[in-house]
Design a binder for these strands. Structure first.
Lengths: 213, 213
DNA sequence: CTGGATCCTGCCCGATACTG
DNA sequence: CAGTATCGGGCAGGATCCAG
């Protein structure tokens, strides 16, 4: 730890020493959605080598960012309060990076946890507060999410459920959120397919989840 | 770029592909203070190998984060507007990391640019707005900074100048900003030495620059 | 002298096999 | 299922060298 060290004393450097290594912040991203088992983390990060996942978990545990918690026969990993304080960092990174997202390449996948954090990034509570409570069932690739907006609060859960609007989308959903693609055009081009519910609710979705340019 | 790829399509992953590699965000940190020449960047990051610095500059230039700008015979590097949008990310990282800063190790240094960004991180504009305009001349290790607070705006420049309060501090200045160390105790223990001006202005400094727990 | 490019060494990462 | 062990390759680290 002492050799491969940035050698500076300030907050940014310290942060990078703790979570600056490869894969670390993606593990944090998934744990911000909820506690996860080792296998769940591995499934959400298909390209991570298992030794790297194990190493990162150990390092971040030693740093007080996450903890191994035994839960009725199985072990789960969960963020400590200090680890949860990384949420603004992850949201800021997500907001910045999403502006540089082009079209997805063939091998790029969208995982449920990544999609959940993207929605949290794009969520505009002050806009949502003015709108009626709405539940959306969104299927993005293989990810099924139940998105409940109630006033200024957002809840995203995996799986299906009762929803005012159910739709299925490809990665083009990002262009909808970025405002690059208008809701009705998204439906017209087939990038978003409405499965149940009034299709004009997609406009409400787009104004609730929006990343400013 | 295609092999060492995270393989996911979302904002956070994209951000990490652009600025997630070693040293990248420290270069951004320094460029957020102002345009810098190659040698200035190298001086502010003493441990970076020159090939890595050159490589990062090229990569981030290709990504549209910074640009090489010829300025009267010399080349300077400056952030593009998109690169400047990383400021919230860097500030969030700095705020988070500074909470984990222990005592500095022997070899850890404080550079002027790092200190400038630390001050920006800790600056509380709403508090400063209630206080009279104040100029501080702060010497932290080898870094000499002129810190001007005028209402809700902050300006940090290198070098000396007219100031209401001039003080010299070690790395313990971070404990002052974190609230761990009261201003009068910082003076009493010698962690901060007031060179010119009324010493109770250090209290104003500490309430202007403060990181919430 | 500044702004890099080049070389070599070593370690981290990536991939996979293997084990409690 | 939850990791550990092992090995090869590639990026990082450090010194040196080159061009304008």
């Amino acid at each position: 730890m002492a050799v491969r060290d940035y050698g500076q004393y300030d907050g940014i450097t310290q942060a990078l020493e703790l979570v600056g290594e490869r894969w670390a912040l993606l593990i944090i991203r998934d744990l911000l959605v909820g506690p996860r088992r080792y296998g769940e983390l591995a499934a959400g990060l298909p390209r991570i080598p298992s030794n790297i996942l194990a190493a990162r978990l150990k390092e971040m545990q030693a740093a007080g960012i996450l903890r191994r918690a035994p839960r009725s026969r199985v072990v789960i990993y969960e963020l400590t309060p200090y680890g949860r304080e990384l949420e603004p960092v992850v949201l800021a990174l997500g907001a910045w990076g999403s502006k540089a997202l082009g079209d997805p390449r063939e091998e790029q996948i969208i995982t449920p946890d990544a999609m959940t954090m993207s929605l949290r990034t794009a969520f505009r509570p002050h806009v949502a507060a003015e709108l009626p409570a709405t539940a959306y069932a969104a299927r993005v690739g293989p990810a099924e999410l139940l998105v409940r907006v109630d006033g200024p609060t957002l809840d995203v859960a995996r799986g299906d459920g009762p929803a005012d609007l159910a739709f299925s989308a490809g990665p083009g959903i990002h262009r909808l959120i970025s405002g690059e693609l208008a809701p009705d055009r998204a439906i017209a081009t087939g990038e978003v397919e409405v499965l149940r519910g009034p299709r004009d609710l997609l406009g409400r979705f787009a104004s609730t989840f929006h990343l400013a340019a």
